[in-house]
Amino acid sequence: MKKGTIWAIAVVAVLVLWGLGQYNGMVGKDEACNEAWGNVESVLQRRFDLIPNLVNTVKGYAAHEKGTLEEITRLRSQWGEAKTPEEKMAAASGMESALARLMVVVENYPELKANENFVRLQDELSGTENRINVERQRYNESVKGYNTGIRKMPGALIARLAGFETRKPFEAVEAAATAPTVQF
């Protein structure tokens, strides 16, 4: 009888220890995601910081593109108001397509394209796009690790108990990857 109690206690203790290990692993992966997301946010912020300078430079040469520039300015304020990662992803995606459209339009303004200030601004922008891609990939990899960790059995039981939820990866914008459609 007493032996049975000891065994039961031992089994429970092992289970609890295992559960704690699983839990701590998930917390670690969750934190890795948070850190990766922080990096994504800082490169996105970098892109949004370049916008006023870009808009001012383009305005001087391409007054006809008021609509596109206004949309970019609007998207920038949308980014300022975004609080949750989902809102920020949406604002960033919107900006990505708007910038891609602007870069196509810019082709019609040879003087602007020759402007040294604009050329360097373009370098900063494309460098930032590259950074965003890099940090986005790293974030998505951590999210993948985390999501797999909390969905695989038997760890999924602990995840359910502790209330871990799957995280959403940050997908690249399809529209920005392909050439924007020209409307007549």
Binding site: D123, G127, N130, E135
Partner: peptide
Amino acid sequence: RSGGGGAR
């Protein structure tokens, strides 16, 4: 490590 800064 690099975060993708630079030019290409």
